[in-house]
Amino acid sequence: MAAGPTTAEKSGASRPNGSSDRSPRGGDGEAREGRFRVPGPRPLLICSALILLVASGIWALYGSSWFRVERVTTSGTRVLTPREVEEVAAVPMGAPLVSVDTDAIEARLAERLPRVDTVDVVRSWPHGIGLRVTERKPVLLLEKGRRFVEVDSAGTRFATVDRAPRGVPKLVLDASASPSLRRFDTDRLLAEAVVVAGELPKKVAVDTRVVRVTSYDSITLELSGGRTVFWGSGEDGEVKARVLSALMKATPKAGHFDVSAPTAPAATGS
């Protein structure tokens, strides 16, 4: 009786030449060929067009004469002149508009022109730079010899002028004898005076000639016609302003008003 095929023979019969009996479902070569297919002409044309477009845009902004600085305009000046502002701004004429360093221009103006509160440097395509200036406004004046130092609403001393601007009260700091001077120095008293000046009723502000400060809680307003207002400290300013308006309306002929304690105001003299 003949022996049946061995296990090796069976294996050899089912896998001739030692190959797997799994039928191929697309060879590796075909997969690689599909995965790394060379792009056709259309994608290449699109990429080339995009590269050309970007290169053209860069050349137009930086290399061409189409978008270069040809003029500078200044707006918002009141005391300063546009020429003063533009000289300090030093905008590079003829430079590509896109490359102008607007932050550097703003920094120069802030450093060299203290009267400038804020400035916006804007590009005005295709050839302009605009300087939009906001100047500081004085709310008080400090006498300095025969000249006047302007102080704005933030307490900043920003300019010294020969002539006092019209409608701006003088500030007199006379706190040398104040026992609280060590606690509230002249800068703090100046700040308090600025706060008071900003909270005055409009009619009172127009009539105020002098703001006199002798201590933190002793601020007096000297008005036109020899009238005075004892304001006290800078606290409760809005309340004091309302009380003062009502008091002056009720006693129009009074010469002295006291709103240092707004719950108990007083008017005296005539």
Rank of each mutant, 00 (worst) to 15 (best):
A3F: 00
A3R: 15
A3S: 11
G4N: 04
K10V: 12
G12C: 07
G12H: 10
A13V: 05
R15T: 03
P16D: 05
P16W: 01
P16C: 06
G18K: 12
S23N: 05
S23T: 13
P24Q: 00
G29D: 09
E33Q: 14
G34L: 14
R35I: 06
R37E: 11
R37C: 01
P43F: 01
S48K: 01
A49M: 14
A49Q: 02
L50N: 03
L53S: 11
I58D: 08
L61P: 02
Y62E: 08
Y62A: 10
S65E: 15
S65N: 14
V72P: 05
T73G: 05
S75C: 01
T77W: 07
T81W: 09
E84P: 01
A90G: 06
A95F: 01
L97E: 03
S99E: 11
V100R: 06
A104L: 10
E106T: 09
E106A: 15
L109E: 06
A110C: 07
A110I: 05
E111L: 08
L113M: 12
P114Y: 00
V116I: 15
T118P: 01
D120P: 00
D120R: 12
W125Y: 10
L131M: 06
R132Q: 12
V139K: 10
E143P: 14
R147L: 12
V149I: 13
S153C: 07
A154I: 00
F158A: 11
F158Q: 04
A159V: 00
D162W: 03
R163I: 06
R166A: 15
R166H: 04
V168A: 04
K170G: 11
L171E: 03
L171G: 10
S176I: 05
S176Y: 03
A177M: 14
S178T: 03
R182G: 11
R182H: 14
F184Q: 06
D187K: 14
A191E: 13
A191R: 14
E192C: 02
V195F: 13
K202M: 09
K203I: 00
R209F: 00
V210I: 15
V213G: 02
T214Q: 13
Y216E: 12
D217Q: 11
S218I: 04
T220L: 15
L221C: 06
E222H: 15
L223P: 03
G226P: 08
W231D: 02
G234I: 02
G237N: 05
G237E: 02
V239E: 13
A246L: 09
K249I: 01
K249Y: 08
A250K: 15
P252Q: 08
P252A: 02
F257A: 02
P262R: 13
P262T: 12
P265M: 09
P265G: 11
A266L: 14
A266V: 04
